[in-house]
């Protein structure tokens, strides 16, 4: 079967079984290996991507439901030599250690930042509660997201 959708702004078309997981389509059919598999059952959040702006576990989404949507992955954020504000905040605060949870964590954080809600510590912690990290104790991740939230607020005090 054929499915058409957008990945990081680019239109793609894949010819795959409809029950193939979005995760496998990204990693194997589209060679976008930035999205990681940690458990395959929606517990760890390492495969988090944005589906029409909402954070989802790509291991739980069949590709038949992605048809016509827009997907955003870590590859759609800043490049290595041009990190975006959130990635830079992670780098500066020490929010990434082993790095395997990082792409999913960044996507959950992007969804949170885009939601425009309050960026107090409790709200940030709730926003990333579906993303397990075993290295950091979460503190530096929370700091990084708070820092990025502050920067975005300063840059655009009245988001649309």
């Amino acid at each position: 079967m054929s499915f058409r959708f957008f990945v990081n702004g680019d239109p793609v078309e894949v010819e795959v079984p409809g029950m193939r997981r979005l995760l496998d389509v990204l990693r194997e059919d589209l060679a976008l290996t930035g999205t990681k598999e940690g458990c395959g059952e929606g517990e760890c959040g390492a495969c988090s991507v944005l589906l029409d702006g909402a954070v989802v576990d790509a291991c739980l989404v069949p590709i038949c439901q992605v048809d016509g949507t827009s997907i955003r992955t870590v590859e759609g954020l800043g490049a290595e030599n041009k990190l975006n504000d959130l990635q830079s905040a992670f780098l500066e605060t020490g929010g990434a250690q082993c790095g395997i949870c990082t792409p999913g964590m960044l996507m959950a954080a992007e969804a949170f930042l885009a939601s425009g809600g309050p960026s107090d510590e409790d709200s940030i912690r709730e926003a990333i509660a579906g993303n397990l990290c075993r290295c950091t104790g979460y503190r530096k991740i929370v700091e990084a997201i708070a820092q990025a939230a502050e920067q975005r607020r300063a840059a655009d005090p009245h988001p649309a």
Binding site: T33, G34, T73, E80, G99
Partner: peptide
């Protein structure tokens, strides 16, 4: 110094075993 391999990890460029083809 910032984490040496940080930018690669933060962009999905870093290759873990299952990412190697």
């Amino acid at each position: 110094p910032l984490r040496r391999e940080g930018p690669a990890k933060l962009t999905g460029v870093a290759k873990y075993a299952d990412d190697l083809v």
